[in-house]
């Protein structure tokens, strides 16, 4: 399987304090917090925000993991079945490819 890397020309930044706030809100029962952004990507003059899961996937795209390994990493960290996570990973990766966000 192909190891996945972010497009090095893309400008992006994660906001760890925002992520912490999202996790805290989720722990407090606010499920809508999962949709809040904590990673910003600037592409062709527009800003995009990635939600909790998309941001987690994005940070793992450093060229060392393939699609399955990304899902496995997240499944282990979130104590969730990989079958549930792999679909979200595939969907996000496909979207990234479409937008030219991967190397």
């Amino acid at each position: 399987m192909k190891k996945l890397s972010r497009n090095p020309d893309l400008v992006w930044r994660d906001e760890p304090a925002e992520r912490e706030g999202i996790v805290k809100a989720l722990e407090g029962g606010d499920e809508s917090a999962a949709e809040r952004g904590w990673v910003i990507i600037i592409d062709k003059g527009s800003m995009h925000q990635l939600n909790l899961l998309a941001g987690e996937i994005w940070l793992l795209l450093d060229g060392t993991l393939d699609e399955y390994e990304v899902a496995k990493n997240l499944a282990s960290r979130y104590d969730a079945p990989i079958e549930e996570i792999i679909e979200d990973v595939r969907e996000f990766i496909a979207d990234c490819e479409k937008k030219g966000w991967l190397a």
Binding site: A17, I40, I42, Q49
Partner: peptide
């Protein structure tokens, strides 16, 4: 989202 620093 509140940013930790300006982007620009």
């Amino acid at each position: 989202m509140k940013l930790s620093a300006p982007l620009t």
